[in-house]
Design a protein around this nucleic acid. Structure first.
Length: 268
DNA sequence: ACTCTGCCTCTAGACGCG
DNA sequence: TGAGGCAGAGT
DNA sequence: CGCGTCC
């Protein structure tokens, strides 16, 4: 989804908007919105075992995949042990503007399936793993099973009408949660007041938890929220074609000069 | 010099044991 | 899918 | 840290 390089741009142009957090403990007692669909995708990809050259997910006695259950359970327990109250948001219908991209993705997956067959026959373990990951998909059943699990654990679940990221942002904007825990900077464009990066990765990997404040970013860039949205569109998003030769730096200059995206377009 | 682009790469959970 | 690194082109 | 297990 990506406004590419948005995080990097903020680090350069609005460093005061970004705060380093010591540990998850800082969020004890806080509600945090999390994109469940994104988590499940990662669990399905990563939680595997190598059985004689093929990389299979964990399964129950009936052969149903359980990797997403194991992943979600252990992760959620860890959050709760730190006093964090997660709110998991599930994807709804994809926005129409993304239908083209989804079709392209389906084609890639078909390609990957062919790759997988070839790699298995060639005995290329690395290529098998790579293709296996590219053919991995989160199904409706995975989502439903996970919702059941979270329900039994007493963890709230939200069904997004469309993109989960947008709903995470809305929950934060409306004060229902303290922050959105995501790696996707687009959440800021959707109005997230506080965005937390690397919340999960921090302990197991060597990554710093970073907290981005939308308010302070706007302050330091000296623009309004509407202008920030215009800035993101000008910088290039995947809802529309990009302007050749315009990246974050040029976009912010043009906006400072003309005020709104409409006036910028007029000038071009 | 600065900026954007394209292309390449790697990477992506959590835990415990030794 | 993203995100970072690097070479190259346009300004 | 590297490696195996989780089902």
């Amino acid at each position: 989804m990506g406004i590419k390089g948005l995080m990097k741009f903020l680090q350069d142009a609005a460093p005061k908007a970004i705060r380093e957090i010591d540990s998850q403990q800082a969020y004890t007692g806080r509600l945090m919105a999390i994109d469940a669909s994104m988590c499940l995708y990662q669990f399905m990809i990563m939680i595997r075992e190598n059985r004689s050259g093929s990389y299979q997910n964990l399964t129950n006695a009936e052969g149903q995949e359980t990797s997403h259950i194991v992943g979600m359970l252990s992760r959620t327990i860890r959050l709760m042990e730190n006093g964090i109250k997660p709110v998991y948001v599930f994807d709804g219908k994809p926005p129409e503007l993304k239908l083209g991209e989804l079709a392209a993705r389906r084609q890639k997956r078909e390609q990957a399936e062919a790759n997988l067959q070839a790699a298995v026959e060639a005995g290329n373990a690395e290529e098998v793993l790579k293709s296996t990951k590219m053919t991995t998909r989160v199904t409706k059943e995975h989502n439903e099973q996970t919702k059941t699990l979270l329900g039994l654990m007493g963890v709230p679940v939200v069904d997004a009408p469309s993109e989960a990221e947008a709903t995470c942002a809305a929950l934060c904007r409306d004060g229902k949660v303290y922050a959105a825990a995501t790696e996707d900077a687009d959440c800021l464009t959707f109005g997230t007041k506080v965005l937390v990066r690397n919340l999960m990765a921090a302990e197991s990997q060597k990554k710093q938890i970073l907290e981005v404040s939308l308010e302070r970013a706007l302050e330091q860039l000296n623009i309004s929220m509407d202008q920030f949205i215009d800035f993101c569109i000008l910088s290039g998003c995947d809802y529309c074609d990009t302007l050749k030769g315009v990246g974050p730096s040029t976009a912010i200059k043009l906006l400072m000069q003309h005020g709104t995206i409409e006036k910028v377009i007029e000038e071009l």
